[in-house]
Write a protein that binds this DNA or RNA. Structure first.
Length: 803
RNA sequence: GCGGAUAUGGCGGAACUGGCAGACGCGCCAGACUUAGGAUCUGGUGGGAGACCGUGCAGGUUCGAUUCCUGUUAUCCGCACCA
């Protein structure tokens, strides 16, 4: 029978046509819809079928929104600074500027293969001086607001990438990029005070239509806890040690105290007898890497020889050092209640420290404790005045009680740390700061931005903690903008996240050289309505972007404080057996051949059909035949019916509305795989009907419009073949008439004891008696025994309970 | 260790607020058209000869459970001594 539709010719024709006559037009009246993809970093490896998925999902959603009457903001750009781009350049032996430009050109061609409706006039590139001018401008503003500061401290250091890392970039003690174990290095660093925004970053999550998983990850990352700081005087000395605890209710049970080895007082607490052991322990701890520390299961520690006084009961408690206490959380010191904390229990058992229970679980003291009782539920015992109180109540009230007693205060703590913002690498935005011997740190004047990244002969990382920029004397040496004295430029660069933290704001006004974005355009087109990308940025990019947006809102640059209203995380496309696609595994599937053989429309649809969009899916090349056959069958079905002048019948109208309803509701639910199977199912019905009287033109047109976001080329071509000289995207998404969808006769399963034995067809308004009579008739001899109960749920089911 | 997700035919996956389990597709089987078919079209396809049995496993609630509850196993993901 008929030959395949010619996808090559049709797709070429419509690409050229869209080029000349864009379908996404801003008439100034339509409401905007901003649908954003997480912009790629231009890798030298190019795109594989996994990369397509997110772009197809966002394009389908964008085109759907366009058909609903929105003016679409759907831009694309390049996250081209940073480690991956630089490492690639080093590996290939080319300058990163050159390799980045080449990679962008290549990937842009590949992305165009998707036929997504990107507005390339809005394109941005983070390495473009006209763009990073504003990345630097934001930094200067943050510096002036006191949010960017310099600090020397031990930071995460990747010995392979030869740069410092933010906390968020350390995964299981290893570098997020290269997987090398991260070490500590004492470096003077630029920091961003993201902790100042901790509460807003936490509370505003409520406003967002984001996956719960991502909200949870950010909540945990910020890690807010409520508790108290309590002061313990050192026995026989004037100074005190402050601890942080979330369980002040257990204060009477504190039988020892532990300080992090890095604690400022650690050394001074040693006595003549313990000095040697204490020094050794502190030294050993300093030599441990993050990974070692994580892998140590067994607790270690050393007694300092000193004692502290528990302020609630005046008892002397020994002070220990142990690396299970973190130096940079809370106060770096803890009170230990072994009866009610797992870690303290383990430590007390190992070093034979007394264990005192202060909460009676179910009213009784546990006779022979095998593990700590960690729940705040039960009655207080061995707790002086607090005896008899409920632990849960006391937990809340104790901080204020302690405050009144003058030995501590109510407080909160966060796991979130300030953001280590310096990178000792070449390929990033220069930090626009000048170090003046007289004036200190002075920002580059705003009118002198951008501070261009200078060309350099050796852009390889030095490993010394200095950026390669430090080697360029003529760049480093400058004068102070304030006093004019000789001064030196900051030579560290910004992390890759700097540009990506705000790029989505720039798209809508990417040529503005006066402002980051004009308020007029920001108010009109921002923020982002739908953001689509992988889940790997849950606490990196997505947290940083929220922080930047809040800051820019605070300084009045924009008028909203959350960047992304709705977030969708697509699952990964993997190779066989769920193995991540990678060059080294040799399981990368390139879209190029598939586009050539099956067409862009087929690949787009298969990307969706392969599985639920939010879950990982294994790629199987053979499956694409299914959607390719569907598109062929649909093509021929429409062409076979188009001139037949079939009159619409009640049945055809019903089928049409059911189709619109099914496709729309599945699309709204983001169940894109079942949208595709829905198309197939309805097409099977249409193909069947073609042999029995045909399909009317309105139904054909409706189907073509519904298909347009998914297979835009074919939809355009069929729309034209149906006799139109406009674009299929000039239509509005069809609406559903619920009345027209209704069936007069409903099929109802008839069950005996919950097992289906027959199916009857009843009219819409049939009475219970009639239906039950019909049901019994249909069952005939199958119904034996005594009928105990008869259940009829109108429109759903008949169930007869018999014994 | 803590938290989350997932588990359904040979395979990918459907099943809306509890109501005919396996839609749709891949693969496979049979047939048609063909010089030919790895193209296309038509039909079939969970298991069992059968009554029946079947949604990771064991219970429970219900007239009725893939769906709700309790426990449990496996896989994946996140956090990981945050006091």
């Amino acid at each position: 029978m008929a030959v395949s539709y010619n996808h090559r010719e049709i797709e070429k024709k419509w690409r050229e046509n869209w080029e000349k006559h864009p379908v996404n037009v801003n008439d100034g009246k339509k409401p905007k819809y901003y649908c954003l993809d997480m912009f790629p970093y231009p890798s030298g490896n190019g795109l594989h079928v996994g990369h397509w998925r997110g772009y197809v999902i966002s394009d389908v959603w964008s085109r759907y929104k366009m058909l609903q009457g929105y003016y679409l903001i759907h831009p694309m750009g390049w996250d081209a600074f940073g480690l991956p781009a630089e490492n690639y350049a080093i590996k290939m032996g080319v300058h990163p500027a050159k390799s980045t430009a080449d990679n962008i050109a290549h990937i842009k061609e590949q992305i165009k293969q998707i036929a997504a409706i990107y507005d390339w006039d809005m394109e941005v590139n983070t390495t473009d001086p006209d763009f990073y001018k504003w990345t630097q401008w934001i930094f200067v503003k943050m510096f002036k607001a006191g949010l960017a500061y310099e600090k020397e401290m031990p930071i995460n250091w990747c010995p392979s990438c030869k740069t410092g890392l933010a906390n968020e970039e350390v995964v299981n003690g290893c570098c997020e990029r290269c997987g090398s174990p991260v070490t500590k290095k004492n470096l003077k660093q630029w920091m961003l005070r993201i902790t100042k925004y901790a509460d807003r970053l936490l509370n505003d999550l409520d406003k967002l239509d984001w996956p719960e998983k991502v909200k949870k990850m950010q909540t945990d990352w910020i890690g807010k806890s409520y508790g108290a700081e309590v002061e313990f005087k050192v026995d026989g000395r004037d100074d005190a040690i402050t601890v942080y605890t979330t369980r002040p209710d257990t204060l009477h049970g504190a039988t020892f105290m532990v300080l992090a080895p890095e604690h400022a007082l650690a050394r001074s607490l040693a006595t003549d007898e313990t000095r040697e052991a204490v020094e050794k322990y502190i030294f050993d701890a300093s030599m441990k890497s993050n990974v070692d520390r994580l892998q140590d299961k067994e607790k270690t520690g050393v007694f300092t020889g000193s004692y502290a006084i528990n302020p609630i009961n005046g008892k002397k408690v020994p002070i220990w050092l142990s690396d299970y206490v973190l130096a940079d959380y809370g106060t770096g010191a803890i009170m230990c209640v072994p009866a009610h904390d797992d870690r303290d229990f383990e430590f007390a058992k190992k070093f034979d420290i007394p264990i005192v229970q202060v909460i009676a679980k179910d009213g009784v003291e546990i006779p022979d404790m095998k593990e700590a009782y960690t729940e705040a539920s039960g009655t207080m015992i061995n707790s002086g005045d607090w005896n008899g109180m409920e632990s849960a109540v006391l937990k809340k009230e104790a901080p204020e009680m302690i405050e009144k007693m003058g030995c501590g205060r109510k407080t909160v703590n966060y796991k979130l740390r300030d953001w280590v913002f310096s990178r000792q690498r070449y390929w990033g935005e220069p930090i626009p700061i000048i170090h003046c011997p007289k004036c200190g740190c002075v920002p580059v004047p705003e009118e002198e931005l951008p501070l261009r990244l200078p060309d350099v002969e050796s852009y390889q990382p030095t490993g010394t903690g200095e950026s390669p920029l430090a080697a360029i004397d003529e760049w480093v040496n400058t004068t102070c903008p304030v006093c004019g004295a000789p001064a030196k430029r900051e030579t560290n660069t910004m992390p890759q996240w700097a540009g990506s933290s705000w790029y989505f704001l720039r798209y809508v006004d990417n040529k503005n050289d006066k402002e980051l974005v004009s308020r007029e355009k920001a108010d009109k087109y921002l923020p982002v309505d739908m953001y689509i990308g992988g889940v790997e940025h849950a606490v990196l990019h997505l947290l940083y972007s929220r922080f930047y947006t809040k800051f820019l809102c605070d300084i009045g640059a924009i008028d909203f404080d959350e960047p992304f209203h709705k977030l969708f995380n697509q699952g990964m496309i993997t190779g066989k057996n769920g193995i991540k696609m990678s060059k080294s595994k040799g399981n990368v599937v390139s879209p190029d051949d598939l586009v050539r053989d099956y067409g862009c429309d087929s690949l787009r649809m298969y990307e969706l059909f392969v599985g639920p969009p939010e879950l990982d899916s294994e790629w199987d090349d053979r499956g694409i035949d299914g959607v390719y056959r569907f598109l062929n069958r649909f093509w021929h079905m429409v062409l076979n019916n188009k001139d037949a002048q079939v009159k619409e019948t009640k049945e055809l109208i019903k089928l049409r509305h059911k189709m619109v309803y099914d496709i729309t509701s599945r699309l709204e639910a983001f169940s894109l795989n079942t949208v595709i199977s829905g198309f197939m199912e309805y097409n099977n019905k249409f193909v069947d009907l073609t042999k029995k009287g045909g399909v009317d033109k309105t139904t054909l047109e409706t189907a073509v419009i519904l298909l347009a976001p998914f297979a835009p080329h074919m939809a355009e071509e069929l729309w034209q073949q149906l006799g139109h000289d406009t674009s299929v995207f000039d239509n509005r998404w069809p609406s559903v008439d619920e009345e027209a969808m209704k069936d007069d006769e409903i099929e109802i399963p008839v069950q005996i004891n919950g097992r289906t034995k027959a199916v009857i067809s009843v009219s819409d308004g049939a009475s219970k008696e009639d239906v039950l009579a019909m049901a019994k008739e249909a069952l005939g001899g199958k119904l034996t025994g005594n009928v105990i109960k008869e259940i009829y749920v109108p429109g759903k089911i008949v169930n007869i309970v018999a014994r």
